[in-house]
C-alpha cells in the first residue's frame, strides 16, 4: 500500500517537473523522438529484410539440366546421387516434354512455336529442381552437382540474390550506428534535464533527507521523470509507425519493386514495433535519469 502511495506521488511529481522545466524537457523529448523514429525505421527495415530473405531462401532452387542423350537409367542414377547429397532437401524431376507442355500452356506464342517440335528436336533439356537445406552452401552443392556425369549445366540465380542481401545488410549496419549515436546523445540530454530538476529541488531534497525520506523515495521521482520523457518522446514515432507503415503498405500493395520483395503485413507487425519503440524510449529515459541521479544526488 505504502509503496503504491509513494509511487503515485513520484509519478505526479515527475509529470509536474516535466512541465515546470518545459523548454529543457522539450529538448530531451525531441531528441528521443528523432532517435526513436530512426530506431523504428531500422526495425521495420530489418524485419522486412529478414522476412523476404527467408521467403527468397525458401524459393531458391538449383536447376540441374541434363545432357540430351541421357537415358532413363542414367536419370535414375543421377536422382539417386542427388538424393544422397547431405545438403539436398528435396528434388523434382521434369522431363523435357513435360516442360514443353507446361510452357505451351503459359502463352500462345510459346504454343505456336513449340507445337512444331516433336520429341526428337525438342531443344529443351530434362531437369531436376533441387531444394537445399542450407542456402549458404548452395554454391558448393551446385558445384558438386555440376561434376556428376551427364549433367550439362547447373543454375541457381547466383549473384543477384547475394547482392540484394548484402545491400540491405549494409543499410542495416548504418542505421544501427546512427541509433547508437543518437541514443548516447539522448541519454546525455536527459542527464542534463534531470540535473536541472535536481538542482531546482535541492532544498526540498535536503529537507526530505533530514526528515527521514528513504533514498528510494528521493530517487524515484527523478527516475520516473526520465521515464515520462521517454514516454512522451515515443508518441510521435509510434504514430509515424502506425500510419506511415500502413500507408506505405497500401501504396505498394504489399510489394516493393517486384513480387519478389513482399512487405510484412501491418497487423500485428506495427503493434510489435510500437511496443519495442515504447520500451526503448522508456528504458533510455530511465538510464539517463538514473545516471543523473547517481551523479548529482549524493545519497
Amino acid at each position: 500500500m505504502k509503496f503504491f502511495r509513494m509511487l503515485r506521488r513520484s509519478i505526479r511529481d515527475a509529470f509536474k517537473s516535466v512541465f515546470r522545466n518545459f523548454s529543457l524537457s522539450l529538448a530531451s523529448i525531441s531528441c528521443i523522438t528523432i532517435t526513436l523514429i530512426i530506431v523504428a525505421i531500422s526495425i521495420i527495415v530489418t524485419f522486412n529484410v529478414q522476412s523476404f530473405t527467408r521467403e527468397m531462401e525458401k524459393d531458391l532452387t538449383i536447376v540441374v539440366f541434363l545432357d540430351n542423350d541421357t537415358t532413363e537409367e542414367e536419370v535414375n542414377n543421377i536422382r539417386e546421387r542427388l538424393e544422397n547429397m547431405t545438403n539436398v532437401e528435396s528434388l523434382t524431376y521434369q522431363s523435357k516434354s513435360a516442360i514443353k507442355e507446361e510452357m505451351s500452356k503459359e502463352s500462345d506464342v510459346f504454343n505456336e512455336v513449340m507445337s512444331t517440335w516433336d520429341d526428337e528436336d525438342n531443344p529443351l533439356k530434362d531437369t531436376f529442381q533441387v531444394k537445399v537445406k542450407d542456402v549458404e552452401k548452395i554454391s558448393d552443392t551446385a558445384k558438386k552437382i555440376g561434376r556428376i556425369d551427364k549433367v550439362s549445366t547447373v543454375r541457381y540465380g547466383e549473384g543477384m540474390v547475394d547482392n540484394l542481401i548484402s545491400a540491405f545488410e549494409a543499410a542495416q549496419k548504418i542505421s544501427y550506428g546512427m541509433v547508437i549515436a543518437l541514443i548516447l546523445v539522448t541519454v546525455f540530454l536527459i542527464i542534463n534535464t534531470i540535473k536541472l530538476t535536481i538542482f531546482s529541488r535541492k532544498r526540498e531534497i535536503s529537507i526530505m533527507r533530514l526528515v527521514g525520506a528513504s533514498n528510494f523515495t528521493i530517487k524515484t521521482p527523478f527516475i520516473v521523470e526520465g521515464m515520462v520523457l521517454g514516454l512522451f518522446g515515443s508518441i510521435i514515432p509510434i504514430l509515424i509507425i502506425c500510419f506511415g507503415y500502413i500507408a506505405l503498405y497500401n501504396h505498394f500493395d504489399g510489394y516493393l519493386y517486384s513480387r519478389m520483395i513482399t512487405l510484412i503485413e501491418p497487423e500485428p507487425f506495427i503493434y510489435m514495433v510500437s511496443g519495442i519503440v515504447l520500451v526503448i524510449g522508456i528504458i533510455v529515459g530511465m538510464i539517463g535519469s538514473a545516471s543523473a541521479v547517481r551523479k548529482y544526488l549524493k545519497i
Partner: peptide, 9 residues
Amino acid sequence: FTMESIGAT
C-alpha cells in the same frame, strides 16, 4: 511534507 516523505496516509 515530513509525513509525505515517509509515506504516511
